[in-house]
């Protein structure tokens, strides 16, 4: 963020930034070519054919169809390159690599709250290691925001009531702007922060410093019992409760009363906590009260991480603290926020 003299480009600090700048160069060249062509023709025609006292009325000039086709097809061809190139970059941008390091972001008027899996929290600052794929899972507590890092050439809206993701791979250590790019009220221009891209060793030191009180999943577990979720939701394999058992459901499809099916992910777990009656798992009653207002967006994030950590998560390496087993066979595939008789779950 050290700025000297006049700049025309932001820092190029991610893998995506390189490809975006390449596309930008192509677009600038096409724009410059046609702008200069049109301007030159206008000037030449205005001078060469300027009206003099003795200029006779010019004859009408009719063009052939092929001329119209030519100047339609050439721009079309050039723009299809723009389309394909832009779409391919966008595809990369919208597909976070599977082994990305995950970080949660919560936007609220007017700050960015960051939660690391290891339990570290920060506000308006984001520390990440260089040369590592980083995936942000983001939500908002109030209005729409947008998490924008110009040096990474990427941004994504941050919406209330759902999760969006954004990923990047920083290639250069340093400090870069975070801007909120979606207008969000009075102090919109103050909803800014800094990404610190660090060498891996430094990052590890940072991560272990400044004591957290446990990982996100551990915090989620504490919250789970504090909010009394455990009274209805079993977290132990094969125990049937009043509400769906949460053991091993992450990433699995759940059959709903409507006949539809839903995959258990951050969005679904969050919805089940804040708006439980939206989707009811087949075989269960609509009895869960809403926890909207009782749990913060960050709390929801912790609960999501806890649910993810219960039991063997399909495909997810390191399915975290194994809950102490207890209990009886459960209906296969119990979903998120619904009740089950109490059971203490301790790793």
């Amino acid at each position: 963020m050290e700025q000297k003299s006049i700049q025309f480009f932001p820092e190029q600090a991610s893998t995506i930034a390189h490809s975006v700048d390449g596309l930008y160069l192509y677009l600038v060249l096409v724009t410059a070519f046609f702008s200069i062509l049109i301007a030159t023709l206008i000037v030449i025609f205005a001078v060469k054919y300027r009206r003099r006292a003795d200029t006779p009325t010019p004859k009408a000039v009719h063009g052939g169809l092929w001329l119209e086709i030519t100047w339609s097809v050439i721009p079309l061809g050039l723009s299809m390159v723009m389309f394909a190139w832009g779409a391919s970059i966008f595809f990369t941008e919208s597909r976070p690599p599977a082994d990305s390091m995950e970080i949660y972001v919560t936007g609220k008027q007017w700050m960015w709250k960051i939660q690391h899996m290891e339990g570290q929290r920060e506000i308006n600052e984001l520390h990440i290691p260089v040369n590592r794929d980083i995936k942000l899972t983001m939500t908002s507590e109030d209005v729409i925001h947008d998490f924008y890092v110009p040096a990474f050439r990427t941004k994504s809206d941050v919406l209330p009531g759902r999760y969006t993701t954004e990923w990047f791979h920083a290639t250069k250590t340093g400090a870069y702007h975070i801007f909120c790019a979606e207008y969000c009220g009075t102090k919109h221009s103050g909803m800014i922060g800094t990404v610190y891209v660090m060498e891996p060793q430094q990052f590890d030191a940072w991560l272990s410093g400044g004591g957290g009180t446990g990982t996100l999943a551990q915090k989620g577990e504490a919250l789970f019992s504090q909010l009394g979720c455990v009274t209805c939701h079993q977290a132990t394999a094969d125990v049937k409760g009043r509400c769906p058992n949460l053991h091993g459901i992450w990433g699995r499809p759940q059959q709903l009363t409507t006949g539809a099916s839903v995959t258990v992910d951050a969005g679904y777990v969050s919805e089940s906590i804040l708006n439980p009656s939206a989707k009811i798992v087949a075989g269960y009653e609509n009895i869960m009260p809403t926890f909207s207002g009782l749990v913060t967006a960050e709390g929801v994030t912790e609960l999501v991480e806890y649910v993810k950590s219960i039991g063997p998560a399909p495909g997810a390496p390191g399915s975290a603290p194994a809950p102490a087993a207890k209990g009886a066979p459960a209906a296969k595939g119990a979903p998120a926020a619904k009740a089950a008789p109490a059971a203490t779950v301790k790793p």
């Binding site: 677009l27 832009g86 970059i89 966008f90 924008y148 790019a181």
Partner: peptide
């Protein structure tokens, strides 16, 4: 045309 190109627009939109 810059803004219709998706990968480009991600960087430029709202700027």
């Amino acid at each position: 045309l810059f803004l219709a190109s998706m990968g480009m627009d991600v960087h430029l939109t709202d700027t």
